[in-house]
Computed example of a mutant assay.
Amino acid sequence: MKHALVFVASPDDKPAYREALLMLGRVALSRKLPPPDVLSGWESAQWIYDSVDGELRQEAAAAVAELPVDWALTPVAGRKKKLLVADMDSTIINVECLDELADFAGIKAEIAAITERAMRGDLEFEPALRERVAKLKGLATEALQKTYDERVRLNPGAATLVKTMAANGARCVLVSGGFTFFTERVAEAAGFHASRANTLLEDATALTGLVQEPILGRAAKLDALRSEARALGVSEQDALAIGDGANDLDMIKAAGFGIAYHAKPLVAAEADAKIDHMSLEAALFFQGYRRGEFVS
């Protein structure tokens, strides 16, 4: 089975690009491969292997271990995915919305500490969410809009990733353990076709401290991947899943291509590829898209 070994560097860091090209080129040369196929000058290149052995991934990882580049080794067949399922907080956007809401209540440090433990997999997601939301009881609902307006920003490359895949026929779904108030707005801003999330319960002017049951957590994210694939009439292998926390892990492992984005160690260790240095556009290069095919 043919595989692509692809790396992505910052176009502003030509020394890193040259070094990655050299180091991975040596790995390719040892298997007598032709020169690399450049996906974007000074940014991304790939080598196509007719077959791979168990040592290639380790060799590639060692070759670029000290470089600020991201890389992936992925099958060529079905490389451009037909379904994108993405986490929202700290993946598609720059913040954890619940932590930012807590800032308006004056308890951000307390809430963020629980969030961090849940994302690392030290706490079960559902009870941790209930605990955090309960601490927001009485917070004015206007804090929701303030949080979105003042704190929430799309991460670099998010809109390009979604719009490029959508333009090439993929269905793009935002699946979050966060809240519909934010996912609906972020989905529209980034170009997702649909979104799934939890609903914060509120009265006329304030949060009640409750979240609508059942809670969308780790299992529900996996179910979302599977149900969206079934609705499209495609396999889970035709999906790309991306996220950063423990409640993303099952969908990342189930997808044909699972990416850990600036992720917790538990997630990074299980994903097919990691994005630790570059923007979300790296997920397009990993799929074999060329810079000229990007839709921004």
Rank of each mutant, 00 (worst) to 15 (best):
A206R: 15
D272C: 11
K274H: 09
Q237H: 11
E59I: 05
E96K: 02
E236S: 13
M278Q: 15
I275R: 04
A194E: 15
R31N: 05
A140N: 14
D89H: 01
P156L: 09
A224R: 06
F294Y: 06
T205C: 15
E202V: 15
Q287L: 12
G209T: 00
R120P: 05
A65K: 04
R57Q: 13
L56C: 08
E124L: 11
G243S: 10
E150V: 06
D13R: 08
I48G: 04
E116F: 08
L123Q: 04
A118G: 06
V295Q: 13
I242W: 06
V295W: 10
G209D: 07
C97S: 08
W71A: 10
A28C: 06
I111H: 02
A255I: 07
E100V: 02
A229Y: 05
L73P: 02
R185S: 07
K108R: 14
I92Q: 08
E142Q: 14
A102H: 10
T183V: 08
L56W: 10
L123N: 04
A239Y: 09
A260E: 06
G243N: 09
A189H: 01
A62L: 14
T147E: 07
K81P: 00
V152N: 00
N94G: 02
I275E: 01
R291S: 14
G54K: 13
F286Y: 01
Y49F: 15
S51E: 13
H277R: 09
G243K: 05
A65T: 04
M278Y: 10
A77N: 05
R31P: 01
G78H: 03
I242H: 01
S235C: 03
A158H: 02
G209H: 05
F104A: 15
D122W: 14
K274C: 14
V133M: 06
A128I: 05
G169V: 09
P34Y: 06
I259V: 14
I107F: 03
L56F: 09
A77E: 14
L56Y: 12
K264V: 11
S90A: 08
W42T: 15
A273C: 12
A4D: 12
A118S: 14
H277I: 09
D272Q: 11
K80E: 08
D70P: 12
A105P: 00
G243E: 12
A229R: 01
T160K: 00
